[in-house]
């Protein structure tokens, strides 16, 4: 006897046993896959997803930071340029001011010196004239005494001197 019994040659013949087995086998497959396979695959996919997203995020952050750093650098550069310009301007103005100050001071000093010099000259001139007067009076008295050969008294002498001085200053001035 053939151990294999040929089933009715009808593909739609219904037999409960394979149906029940299908349910049992599928449930076992489902449980095993759910416990040992799908969590791993889900985790792998999620991890990769997270990794890619975080990499994109950090790349974007780095780009933002670079952008900010560039802007900061450019702002600093502009500030420095501005500052340098201001410094040059102020230095130029300072130099001009100093030069003008110096010039004014020099001029003032020069004027002062000129004034003092003319004052000195004046003083010296006056002193010389006064000395000259004295000497001239003495000399005139002596000369006149000798010429007249007489003693001119003091009152005469004085009178004479003053007259001659008057004459002298009229001529001199």
């Amino acid at each position: 006897m053939n151990p294999l019994v040929l089933a009715a040659d009808n593909p739609a013949a219904f037999n409960w046993m394979p149906g029940v087995t299908a349910i049992v086998v599928f449930l076992i497959v489902l449980v095993v896959l759910s416990l040992f396979v799908w969590p791993k695959i889900s985790k792998g996919l999620d991890d990769r997803n997270e990794k890619i997203l975080s990499e994109i995020k950090s790349a974007e952050e780095a780009r933002e930071q670079a952008k900010a750093a560039l802007a900061e650098y450019e702002r600093n550069l502009a500030e420095a340029r501005e500052e340098a310009n201001q410094m040059i301007q102020s230095a130029r103005a300072e130099a001009k001011r100093v030069a003008e100050d110096l010039k004014a001071k020099n001029e003032a000093e020069l004027a002062e010196r000129l004034k003092r010099a003319s004052h000195d000259i004046e003083t010296a001139k006056k002193a010389a004239i006064s000395q000259l007067h004295d000497s001239a009076a003495d000399l005139a008295a002596a000369v006149a005494g000798k010429i007249l050969d007489r003693e001119v008294n003091a009152a005469d002498q004085k009178q004479l001197v003053e007259e001659s001085l008057k004459e002298l200053s009229e001529h001199a001035v």
């Binding site: 497959v29 095993v32 896959l33 040992f36 695959i41 985790k43 792998g44 990769r48």
Partner: peptide
Amino acid sequence: LTTQMVTMVIAGFVTVFLLWIASRAIVT
């Protein structure tokens, strides 16, 4: 017991085994 039942059980084992192999490579 029929041939298709045996086939189904083998297919169940193969499914689990192949997917398990794949999951080991997919996991981080």
